[in-house]
């Protein structure tokens, strides 16, 4: 192993969980770190997960070479309000889900078809009018992508996605 070579290293997607103090500016610190150092963010979610200890959990999906992803984790660990950084992608099996609200407008056959496909995807209609549905679909990113793609010709008008939340399989906490 010597200095960086010209060989283009493989880029991979990683899902990273970050446990942080739930305080003002903490999300800005994380996002600023990514933009300031030129790292990618494919998805980022954040919410309080432990009120008693005032902790929030951030799930970041990012892409980069092994060296860059290692940098990202180390840079995150440097932030004072960050307690724990875990790379779910390499630290063993995990489950990842996102939720999307998908609005489809139309009548007639297309409307019926959209319902049929929603059924296949186990998406629920959580709002309906005579000319529209709002579907709630939950699953891995690929499943949500596929559902949205199938809705496109059926009158897709609007999408809102949560981004990925993820957790390690098995009994252990983060």
């Amino acid at each position: 192993m010597t200095a960086m070579t010209k060989i283009v290293e493989e880029t991979n997607r990683h899902t990273i969980s970050v446990l942080v103090d739930n305080e003002a500016g903490v999300l800005a610190r994380v996002i600023g770190l990514f933009s300031g150092r030129g790292y990618n963010i494919e998805s980022l979610t954040v919410a309080e997960v432990n009120r008693a200890e005032n902790l929030s959990r951030i799930t970041i999906v990012t892409t980069g070479t092994a060296m860059i992803v290692e940098q990202i984790k180390n840079q995150l660990r440097r932030l004072v309000p960050v307690h724990k950084v875990s790379d779910l992608t390499i630290e063993g099996p995990h489950v990842a889900r996102e939720l999307a609200l998908v609005k489809v407008a139309g009548t007639g056959d297309k409307r019926v078809e959209s319902l049929r496909i929603a059924d296949i995807f186990r998406a629920r209609a959580i709002d309906s009018t005579n000319e529209s549905f709002v579907f709630e679909v939950v699953g891995a990113t690929e499943k949500v992508d596929a559902f949205i793609k199938l809705m496109e010709p059926l009158g897709l008008v609007d999408v809102s996605r949560t981004g990925v939340v993820a957790i390690a399989r098995g009994p252990n906490p983060l």
């Binding site: 060296m67 180390n74 660990r77």
Partner: peptide
Amino acid sequence: IDPSSVNKNVAVD
């Protein structure tokens, strides 16, 4: 003392 300095520019053994 700073892990983020390691393997940033130069990979080390």
